[in-house]
């Protein structure tokens, strides 16, 4: 039995590969440069690097949905906002 029932497409495969790479990068960073202890940021939450990755991905998903619902396609604006948002989350949250 092949994987045809999963209906893979190149963009969705790239999307999941990016997620896996992001998680692997986190693991690699933690191995090379341990320091993933919880830290208290501007939201007064104790977050580890993994938490910040989760907040970034979940937030980016909502940024994209919000952009799509309010502005429609193309999504470049949402991508830019998400990148800035992710940077801010990793820097200050």
């Amino acid at each position: 039995m092949g994987l045809s029932w999963m209906a893979w497409t190149a963009p969705t495969a790239a999307f999941f590969i990016c997620i896996v790479l992001a998680i692997s990068l986190m693991g690699f960073l933690e191995w090379r440069n341990p320091g993933g202890e919880p830290r208290r940021g501007i939201l007064t939450l104790d977050t580890t690097r993994g938490d910040r990755l989760f907040i970034s991905i979940l937030g980016s998903a909502f940024i994209h949905l919000g952009w799509l619902g309010l502005m429609g396609t193309p999504l470049w604006g949402a991508v830019i906002i998400s990148v800035v948002y992710t940077y801010c989350v990793f820097r200050w949250v």
Partner: peptide, 27 residues
């Protein structure tokens, strides 16, 4: 979940034949 993500960007009429639709369904 991966399969659902794949379905969400395509259209199908059955028989495992899919057509790319992008983010149209989300919109």
């Amino acid at each position: 979940l991966m399969t659902v993500v794949n379905y969400s960007v395509q259209e199908t009429f059955g028989n495992n034949v899919f057509f790319w639709e992008g983010v149209k369904w989300f919109e």
